[in-house]
Simulated assay, not measured.
Amino acid sequence: MYATADDFVLRIGEQQAIELTDRDRTGEINQQVLAIALSDSSSQMDGYLLGRYTLPLASIPDNLVRICCDIARYRLVSMSEVTTTDEIIERYKLSLKELEQIASGKISLGIASNETQAEDSVGVIFSNPGNRIFSRDNSN
């Protein structure tokens, strides 16, 4: 996962985390509900990152933590009694746009991408310029 429950609470606050996850009205964060939302968000992010990066990433850049939390927040709002605000919608849309830019290479995560790894790898090329192995008349 790209973000932990602690990352989520630090970014949106404990009170809203409770409001978004407390389906049984215990007054506490429902860790299971939050974990599922973060997992679903991470899975969605993988769809954007898989073509460019080898997953799982060795370390998680801060912008991916933020994006994961914004996507999870948007998902949780749709399943809670919390009112969806323009800010939540805008942050979700900006997160998706940023993921698209990362996937296209317009924004770098600062780690080696699949393309960079492919360029760095050494390949072997065989050449046989003057000696044909096969010919049309089968005289070989």
Rank of each mutant, 00 (worst) to 15 (best):
M1Y: 02
T4M: 05
A5T: 09
A5I: 15
D7T: 07
D7I: 11
F8S: 01
F8I: 04
V9C: 02
V9Q: 05
L10N: 13
L10V: 02
R11E: 15
R11D: 12
I12E: 06
I12Q: 05
G13N: 06
Q15D: 14
Q15S: 12
Q16L: 15
A17V: 10
I18T: 08
I18S: 11
L20K: 11
L20F: 11
T21F: 08
R23Q: 13
R23P: 00
D24G: 01
G27E: 05
G27I: 07
Q31W: 02
Q31K: 11
Q32D: 11
L34Q: 05
A35G: 10
L38H: 07
S41Q: 04
S41K: 05
S41H: 04
D46Y: 05
D46M: 10
D46A: 10
D46T: 07
G47H: 09
Y48R: 07
L49N: 05
L50H: 06
L50M: 08
R52T: 13
R52D: 06
Y53T: 02
L55E: 07
L55T: 10
P56C: 04
L57R: 07
L57M: 04
A58N: 08
I60G: 01
P61S: 08
D62R: 08
D62T: 13
N63G: 00
N63H: 06
L64F: 06
L64S: 06
R66P: 00
I67K: 05
I67V: 15
C68I: 04
I71C: 08
A72S: 14
A72D: 04
Y74F: 15
S78A: 12
M79F: 13
M79N: 11
S80M: 07
V82F: 03
T83A: 14
T84G: 02
E87P: 00
E87L: 11
R91L: 14
Y92N: 12
Y92T: 00
K93S: 09
K93H: 07
K93T: 12
K93V: 14
S95L: 09
L96K: 12
L96P: 01
K97M: 09
E98P: 00
E100A: 14
Q101R: 15
Q101L: 15
Q101F: 12
I102W: 02
A103N: 10
G105C: 02
G105H: 02
I107N: 09
I111A: 03
S113F: 09
S113L: 08
T116R: 04
Q117G: 00
A118E: 15
A118P: 01
E119I: 05
E119D: 09
D120H: 04
G123Y: 12
G123W: 02
G123H: 12
G123P: 00
G123K: 14
V124A: 08
V124D: 01
I125P: 00
F126H: 06
S127I: 14
P129L: 14
N131R: 10
N131T: 13
R132M: 03
I133V: 09
S135N: 14
D137H: 11
D137R: 14
N140I: 11
N140A: 10
